[in-house]
């Protein structure tokens, strides 16, 4: 079980006038790690392992955790533009952008806008597109029609091992959880967890992309992940066994191993080599 559950304030930085929580770990090639509502769960395994090779940037998205949400944020594209602005302000290059769940959706939106500062993209069980043409079919199960127990059953390969008693956590964590859920709902409610035009623009991602898929994700099928990868030109699809919607939480070692192997491939090496 994680020993750090966002119980104390993170360092904050100001990006384009917006204060967000940002932790930075390690040194080396920059890696921007974007998460969804799971960002309060801080098993440090994956970020510590990544920090051995990368300088890892772990922000709380605007409106998530204790990061500010600008009043004029209107849709998912605002998150993408926000992080592109952050990469500009920090002047980061050859960045590996890793996104999980809602953060994977942001990463896909970001990369389809501009890969100028990116070297590689990793999307793990990302939201963001709709595959089916049948309006009566759900690609992504409706978490807002589930009890909390059902939500856990759908998110995790092993829900029992991931049931966390939040009642003893400090207000700092609980308010962070509540804010994250609220913001994801605000931007994911309708259209439900996708942007109808993203499918069209994924072809613009012109850096090597790895789509990772926790096979035990009961919100979305593995076929959804495969179809997502199929829309990105230079992409690889890999599954992680015994992991659900959050493979970095359930199988951190496997998750990191995949990223490092991918980033070490020649195709994903520094794109702009002298």
């Amino acid at each position: 079980m994680p020993d750090n559950l966002y119980e104390t304030p993170d360092p904050q930085i100001d990006v384009d006038g917006v204060k967000i929580d940002l932790r930075v770990k390690g040194s080396g090639r920059p890696l921007l790690f974007l998460q969804g509502i799971e960002s309060w769960i801080r098993d440090e395994t994956f970020s510590d392992e990544l920090a051995k090779q990368f300088k890892v940037y772990l922000p709380q998205n605007p409106g998530f955790g204790h990061s500010e949400l600008p009043d004029d944020f209107y849709n998912i594209g605002d998150f993408a533009n926000f992080y592109l602005t952050m990469l500009d302000e920090l002047d980061l290059r050859d960045v590996v952008v890793v996104g999980t769940s809602f953060g994977g959706w942001i990463a896909a939106e970001l990369a389809s806008r501009s890969c100028e500062r990116l070297g590689a993209v990793v999307l793990a069980n990302p939201f963001g597109i709709r595959i089916s043409d049948d309006p009566l079919r759900r690609d992504i199960k409706d978490i807002y029609a589930m009890s909390q127990a059902e939500v856990a059953d759908h998110f995790y390969h092993d829900p029992e091992a991931n049931r966390r008693d939040v009642t003893q956590l400090p207000d700092h964590t609980l308010v962070a959880i509540a804010r994250s859920r609220e913001t994801m709902c605000l931007f994911g409610w309708e259209p439900y967890m996708h942007n109808p035009s993203l499918k069209r623009w994924l072809k613009r991602i012109n850096v090597p992309t790895l789509v990772l898929w926790g096979e035990g994700d009961k919100l979305m099928s593995t076929d959804y992940g495969r179809a997502y990868a199929g829309l990105i030109p230079n992409s690889t699809f890999r599954t992680i066994e015994e992991a659900g919607h959050y493979p970095h939480v359930e199988r951190p070692a496997d998750f990191v191993r995949h990223i490092i192997a991918f980033a070490d491939e020649p195709a994903a090496q520094m794109r702009i080599s002298a």
Partner: peptide
Amino acid sequence: PGYQSPENNAKWLR
């Protein structure tokens, strides 16, 4: 999520 304030929702969670 969002119907109540984060502070009230934190109380619910607790």
